[in-house]
Design a protein around this nucleic acid. Structure first.
Lengths: 221, 221
DNA sequence: CGGGCCTTGTCAGCGAATTGTCAGCACGGC
DNA sequence: GCCGTGCTGACAATTCGCTGACAAGGCCCG
């Protein structure tokens, strides 16, 4: 967990270093706006603590340039007490949080943890099974990286098989899952969907175990 | 963009409602801890503003119970001035931000926006998705740099899609966030808004995945 | 207070994509 | 070789989403 502290006051920088270090961060410090900009733009930090009053380049400008370059690591800004307008500006420039000086170290650490916790909680929702990839955010399917157009029903079928982890799924269970069991379909409806999918995906993706059901090949042999 | 305001003081609640409403949120309010807990646990909000002193159940307990149930929407806590210990507790209970009372409405709105941005994994107030740019501060939209006049409702739709990061958003979810679920609309209302937007933005901006919902094209290929 | 403009929900019709059904075919198991 | 299960292609029905028009409501300005 790397953290960058941008602060020109030696004493405060040392305190921050100590407190964040004790909280489990690997801390680097930097006292000047240009260095800060360069480091933040090229290195990969889990958190940046940024003081606004800096030599060589103003903290707000640094922040804006990071954001303009698409860097979106969490940034905690330190502001002067009571300058609420400055805080609004900071937030609109892309700060994730601010702390008015002077502050309690406990509070800084708590907010740092909260920021990191939040920025970590964004997993990509893609599942890969054999040559098949499905993205549950985009509701899309790809085969060996090539996107394949599938309809809603086809997607749901694939998704259910994928989440079943290669298990052989009986037709009854699939029917029940795809449609409510309220409205009944001919048993053949399912076979038709599978057939259409196989035409799109080619052989070797959806397997049949005669008398038992369907499964995704390549997931668990 | 639905927001829940939990505040027992009628006047403050009304002010918050007005300010957040003007900032483009669809605001619901609630004055008691138990209701708050129930709403936050069952409904889907983009933001919750939570006062700590509440009847029926303490704000911190409400928050903890949400988090214990795995609800991770951004929560902005209102605290009494100077009670920094209370703030640390709040953050460790899972608050994403706090604001000491009394506060400036401008600041609250700025932080609310920042929270929503952050929870979508974006750092900046200006979002670019494909040819589309939207500025969450000014509530304005541009297409390839050319400003486009959109209505409040259209903007909210675009903003929600943009903050969803290109995910396919089901119509039900969109309806819920554009209007509260208090007043129901025909399903067609949504399609009408999308149609109007497409007329303004041209093709290739808002995509449809039949059977699933809408998404912003070009957000990540 | 009245008038006009802007916004937005609703309706009805249309077109296309999706999907169920059917009938015949293929293939595997015994 | 026979039987049954599952596959396929064609076809038709249906669902889904889009569009344009219209009307109701809201808001600003005179």
């Amino acid at each position: 967990m790397r953290a960058l502290v941008v602060e020109d006051d030696q004493r405060i920088a040392a305190d921050l270093d100590a407190a964040l270090g004790a909280a489990g961060f690997v801390v680097e410090t930097c006292a000047d706006g240009e260095d800060a900009w360069f480091l933040g733009d090229t290195e990969d930090y889990a958190l940046i603590v940024l003081d606004l009053g800096l030599p060589a380049m103003d903290g707000l400008s640094v922040l804006k340039r990071w954001r303009a370059n698409g860097r979106n690591m969490p940034v905690l800004v330190l502001t002067a007490r009571g300058a609420w307008m400055e805080r609004v500006e900071g937030i609109e420039a892309g700060a994730d949080d601010y702390l008015p000086k002077p502050f309690r170290m406990e509070e800084l650490v708590a907010r740092a943890r909260a920021l990191v916790r939040r920025s970590a909680g964004q997993g990509a929702a893609v599942h890969s099974i054999g040559a098949l990839t499905l993205d549950t955010n985009r509701m899309s399917v790809a085969l060996r990286g090539v996107p394949v157009r599938v309809t809603a029903l086809e997607y749901r079928l694939l998704a259910y098989l994928a989440l079943s982890n290669g298990r052989v799924v009986p037709p009854g269970e699939l029917l029940e899952h795809l449609y409510g069991d309220d409205d009944a379909r001919e048993a053949n409806a399912l076979e038709a969907v599978v057939a259409r999918l196989r035409r799109k995906l080619g052989a070797g993706v959806i397997g049949t175990r005669r008398g038992f059901g369907y499964f995704l090949e390549g997931s668990a042999a």
